[in-house]
Design a protein around this nucleic acid. Structure first.
Lengths: 253, 253
DNA sequence: ATGCCGGAGGCCCGATCATGCCCGATTGAG
DNA sequence: CTCAATCGGGCATGATCGGGCCTCCGGCAT
C-alpha cells in the first residue's frame, strides 16, 4: 500500500469516526507508529486533520463525506441510486452545470474517469472533487461562500451564470412539488439556482422522494422548469403521473 | 508494442485496479522498470495519473492533494516558519486576499480560530480550508481552474479582482529577484497575481529563500511592488539589504 | 547503397524516499 | 506532582528514482 493511499484511508477513517489514534492505525495498516505519525503530520500540514496527542481529529473537511447530522437523516442509499441513474443523462461532450448539494456531490464523485466534459459549478466540495479529474475542464463560479452549504452565492455567482449557456444542469432542491415548485431554505442560494436554471438548455432535478411535498422559504422555480426528475421509488405512482402531466419526465430508481 | 499503446494500456489498468506498480508493469509488458517509469512520467505530465513512490494512482481518485501534503521534502520547515511569521501581518479586521500556493496554504491553515476577517481567494484548496472557519467571511474568486495549482484563472478571476480593494495581499511567487522581479511559470496565473497585486493596498510576499534568484516564464511584477518580503534565513544579508534598498522591507525568519 | 539522425529502450550510479529503530524530550492523566 | 505514554529528531537501510550515456532501429536524404 502506498503512502498516499494510506493517508487517504486514514483521512476517511478520521472523518468517519470523528477521530483516529496512532496505535490503532499502526495495527490496522501493519506499519509502525512512526509511519502513522508521519502520515498524520502530512495530513496536518495539508490542513485536513488536526493533530492531537495520541491521534488526530478531522478538520476543514473539503469533501462531501456525509457529516453526522446528515447521516442520521439517511436516504444515503436513495441518493446514491439517484446519482448513479443521473449518469445516463450526461452528454458525451459539452457543458454541464452542477448545483450544490450532497446528491449532486455523489453524482460528481461517480463521474467516470474517462468522461470528457466542461463542468461549471458554484459548489466548493464539488469543485474540489473534480479539480484533478483528467477529462474535465472545470470552471468555478465565484461569490460569497455560505458556511453551511459551501456554495458560492451573490453578485459574482449570479453574473457568472448570466454569461454562460450549458447543455444540462443537474440541480438539487430541498423541496419540490407541483403546487409549491422548487424550494430551498436560503434566498441567496435560491437566486443562484434560478440563474443556473436559466443558463441551461435542459434541467435535471436530482431529489430523493423525501423532498417531495416539502416546501421551504425560498422558491426558485416551478416543476415545469424541470425537464427530468430523477428520484427514488418512494414517490407514489400517482404523484409521479401528476408531475408528468406538468410536462416533466419522471424517473424513479 | 509501441509506447503510446503501452501507456494507454497502463492507464486502463490503473483506472481498472485503482493503482499500478512499476515492477508488475515491467513484467507485464516485458520491458525494464525505467521504461515504465518513463511511461508513468508521461501519463503524470498529462495529468492522467498521479505518480507515487513505487507506482501510480489514476488521477481523480484521491480527494486530497498529495502535493499539498508534501512530506519533509521541499523546504517544508522554512515554509512553515514563513507562514507563521506572516500571521503578524494580519490586520485585526478588514479584508485580505490570499494567493494560491503551498506557503500561503500553510498560512491559511494557521489562521487563528478567533480571527475575524473577510478573505478573498482564487485558490480552491485554500477556500476549502477556510470555508468552515467561523470568523471568516469567505469570497471565492471564480474562473477556469488549472489542474496543477487548483487555482482559478482567466476572465472571471481578473474581473473579480478588478472590482475589489483589499487591505493586504499575501502573495507567493515561484521566483523573485531584484533584477527579474516576480515570476511564475504560467501566464494565466501571472495575470491573476498581477490583478491581485493591483487590488491590495499592501503586498506581502511569502517565499522561502530557494525562490530567490529564480526566474520563470511569466513575470507579474517587480520587487518594488512588494511592501514586505517574508523569507527564511537562507537569504544572504547582502541580498536582503539589496532588496531593502528597493523599498521592500525584508523579514528573515 | 550508405551514412546521418532522432526516438525508444536499456544500463548504470548517485540521490532520494519510505520506513523502521533508538532515545531524550514533552505531554497529559491521575 | 509523577510517571507512563507519546512525540519527534537523528540515523540506518533497502527500495525506488532519475539523469546521463549507449545501443538499436527505422526513416530519409545524399
Amino acid at each position: 500500500m502506498y503512502a498516499p493511499e494510506r493517508q487517504q484511508e486514514i483521512l476517511r477513517l478520521a472523518r468517519d469516526g470523528g477521530r483516529v489514534d496512532v496505535l490503532s492505525l499502526a495495527e490496522e495498516f501493519q506499519v509502525t507508529a512512526e509511519t502513522i505519525r508521519r502520515d498524520l503530520k502530512a495530513l496536518d500540514r495539508a490542513g485536513l486533520v488536526r493533530r492531537v496527542h495520541g491521534g488526530a481529529i478531522p478538520a476543514g473537511r473539503l469533501d462531501f463525506e456525509p457529516d453526522l447530522a446528515e447521516r442520521e437523516s439517511t436516504a444515503a442509499d436513495e441518493k446514491d441510486r439517484v446519482a448513479k441513474a443521473a449518469l445516463a443523462e450526461l452528454p458525451t461532450e459539452g457543458t454541464v452545470i452542477l448545483d450544490a448539494g450532497t446528491t449532486v456531490a455523489r453524482f460528481a464523485a461517480a463521474l467516470p474517469l474517462e468522461a470528457s466534459l466542461t463542468v461549471v459549478t458554484h459548489s466548493l466540495p464539488i469543485a474540489a472533487r473534480l479539480a484533478d479529474h483528467p477529462g474535465i475542464q472545470l470552471h468555478l463560479v465565484g461569490g460569497r461562500v455560505r458556511h453551511r452549504t459551501r456554495a458560492a452565492v451573490d453578485a459574482w455567482a449570479l453574473r457568472a451564470y448570466g454569461e454562460i449557456r450549458a447543455d444540462v444542469l443537474f440541480v438539487a432542491a430541498n423541496g419540490f412539488s407541483a403546487e409549491h415548485g422548487l424550494t430551498t431554505p436560503d434566498l441567496a442560494e435560491a437566486a443562484v439556482k434560478r440563474a443556473a436554471v436559466a443558463a441551461a438548455r435542459r434541467v435535471v432535478l436530482l431529489a430523493d422522494s423525501s423532498k417531495h411535498g416539502q416546501e421551504h422559504f425560498a422558491r426558485f422555480g416551478d416543476l415545469g422548469d424541470v425537464d427530468l426528475l430523477i428520484t427514488d421509488s418512494g414517490l407514489s405512482p400517482e404523484d409521479a403521473t401528476a408531475i408528468e402531466r406538468g410536462g416533466t419526465e419522471v424517473l424513479c430508481v
